[in-house]
Simulated scan of single mutants.
Amino acid sequence: MADARQTDRLAALRRWAGARHAADGERLRIELAAGDASFRRYYRLWLGDAPTRIVMDAPPDKEDSRPFVAVAKAWREAGLPVPALHHADFDSGFLELEDLGDTPLHLCLTDDGLANDAGDDDAYREALALLATLQRRAPRTGLPTYAAALLGRELDLYPDWCLARLLGIAPPPCWPSARARLIESALSQPRVAVHRDFDAMNLMRHAGQLWLIDFQDAVDGPLSYDLVSLLRGRYRRFAEADYAAFIEAFRREAIKDGRLADTIGITTFRYHADLMAAQRSLKVLGIFCRLTLRDAKPGYLQRLPLFLAHLRDSLAPWPAFGELSAWLDSDFAPALHRELARRGLQARGVAP
């Protein structure tokens, strides 16, 4: 059924693009450029001597493209590097965008981002400079609030999809208090426009700079969220000293330009960043299991050990999470590795 649906969507896209450009849709060159963890798909459209375009296929019964369009317009008006929007048809679910090429930042990293390579560090510094620009310029007006209810729903993906449905185990007794503490920390931070998936896969290298894509889930939320999305994302597990240096450089810059009060010291900011990273790691563990069990995308399971490592790294410095950390080692990690072995999967992206 999925293949038939995709064939029907592609045929509809051809008719739509043909009508848009006064051409025979069947003769247009249209090729798949990228898939997505959601139901969106991206196609490259050739238009003779004109620059190529990207057409986003976001089935309207599955995806709402209005947030993407609203953020694209607001951020472009703010001078941020986002693709130009040439046309949006909400009824059909097709959007025509500027083509930013085929080089997301993660393809520029060494050894899947795990090697200690100076070029990789430079790439992350470039990404963090873009993040600072995003936080300074992007308006928060009109963005959904990253409130306690949303943070809680995201955290609940972990016990619902990862523990109960994938592994068949219960959360530890400390889960309710740990969950509440993570939400409290997130809500106590200064608020900025949050991309919400500021990872190396969503930063495109094009025309000599980095560009932002996949920003449809942007919210008004915690200052550290996009920071830890990048530093504890799917392509790198930093050594503690390197991670701490990036966090401190971000803190100093944020104080200098007014995003963060100068009363927020190193330990306090590190605490909030680590708890934000833990919240996101738990959410990702749940989402990746949902993608496998609900959406038949099993490749995501191989990334679970990396996000478990991120979760352990984030909680380890803080005694208040000692019970949860111990349970991760005694119960969760063995159950996860048994399940991956049962499925014949090997962990990806975990540094030695």
Rank of each mutant, 00 (worst) to 15 (best):
M1R: 13
A4V: 09
Q6H: 15
T7F: 02
A12D: 11
R20T: 13
G25I: 06
R29A: 13
I30A: 08
I30F: 03
E31N: 11
A34I: 09
G35K: 09
A37K: 07
R41K: 14
Y42A: 09
R44S: 13
W46K: 02
L47E: 04
L47I: 03
T52F: 03
I54A: 11
V55S: 06
D57M: 05
A58H: 01
P60W: 04
F68N: 02
E77L: 13
A78T: 06
P81V: 10
P81Y: 04
P81C: 08
V82E: 04
P83E: 12
P83G: 12
A84T: 10
L85A: 04
H86A: 14
A88Q: 00
G93L: 09
F94Y: 14
E96D: 15
E96F: 07
L97F: 07
L97E: 00
P104C: 11
L105T: 06
T110E: 14
D111T: 05
A115G: 12
D122S: 14
D122R: 15
L130D: 01
P139K: 12
P139T: 10
R140E: 02
T145Y: 02
L151W: 00
R153L: 14
D156I: 08
L157E: 03
Y158L: 15
C162D: 03
R165P: 00
A178Y: 00
L182A: 08
I183F: 07
E184H: 14
P190E: 11
V192P: 05
V192F: 09
H195N: 12
R196H: 09
D197N: 10
F198V: 08
A200R: 03
Q209N: 06
L210I: 14
L210Q: 04
D214G: 10
F215C: 09
F215S: 09
V219F: 04
S224R: 06
Y225L: 10
L227V: 04
V228K: 03
L230A: 08
L231V: 05
L231S: 10
G233K: 06
R234T: 10
R237P: 00
A241M: 05
A241L: 13
Y243A: 11
A245Y: 01
E248F: 12
F250T: 10
F250K: 01
I255E: 13
D257E: 11
D257M: 05
D257G: 05
G258F: 07
G258N: 08
R259F: 05
T268D: 15
F269C: 04
Y271F: 14
Y271L: 15
D274T: 03
D274N: 11
L282E: 00
G286H: 06
G286K: 06
F288C: 08
R290W: 01
L293C: 07
R294S: 09
D295M: 09
D295N: 10
R303A: 15
L304K: 01
L304C: 15
F307H: 15
L308N: 02
L311Y: 00
R312Q: 14
L315M: 06
A316Y: 02
L324N: 03
L328W: 05
L328K: 09
S330W: 02
F332K: 07
P334T: 13
L336R: 10
Q346H: 10
Q346M: 12
V350T: 12
V350L: 14
A351T: 09
